[in-house]
Simulated scan of single mutants.
Amino acid sequence: MKIAFDGKRFFNNTSGLGNYSRDLVRILATTFPENEYVLFNENQSERGKDILEIPNVSFVETSKGTMSRQFKMGIDAQKINADIFHGLSGELPLKWTEKPIKKIVTIHDLIFLRFPQYYSFFDRIIHFWKFKKATVQADLIIAISEQTKRDIIKFLKVPEEKIRVVYQGCHQAFKENQTEEFLSSVKEKYNLPVRFILNVGTIEKRKNLLNIVKAINGTKIPLVVIGKKTKYFKKIKKYVIKHQLENQVFFLENVSMEELAGIFKLADVFVYPSFFEGFGIPVIESLFSKTPVITSNLSCLPEAGGENSVYINPHNFEDIKAKILFLWNNESERKRRAEKSFEFVQKFNDVEIGKNLHSVYQEVMLK
Rank of each mutant, 00 (worst) to 15 (best):
I3R: 02
F121P: 00
K64H: 13
V200N: 09
I144D: 14
D139R: 07
S21N: 11
Y361A: 00
F40Q: 03
I236G: 03
I353V: 04
A4T: 03
K340I: 09
Q117I: 11
N19R: 13
R337K: 11
M67L: 15
V351A: 09
W96F: 15
S68C: 13
V57Q: 06
T230S: 15
E160C: 00
Y239L: 02
K367E: 08
A215W: 12
G354R: 04
E246V: 12
D50P: 00
S286D: 05
F11N: 03
I141R: 09
I107Q: 07
G262H: 01
F112E: 02
N297E: 12
F59K: 06
S289F: 10
N217K: 15
N43K: 14
I324V: 14
F131N: 05
E303M: 04
V38W: 04
Q362L: 15
I284F: 11
T30E: 11
I152S: 04
S359D: 14
V364D: 01
L266S: 03
I111E: 09
Q78L: 08
F11K: 08
N35A: 12
N254E: 09
D6A: 05
L198H: 10
E303P: 03
I236Y: 09
K214A: 04
T31D: 08
T14R: 13
D83K: 10
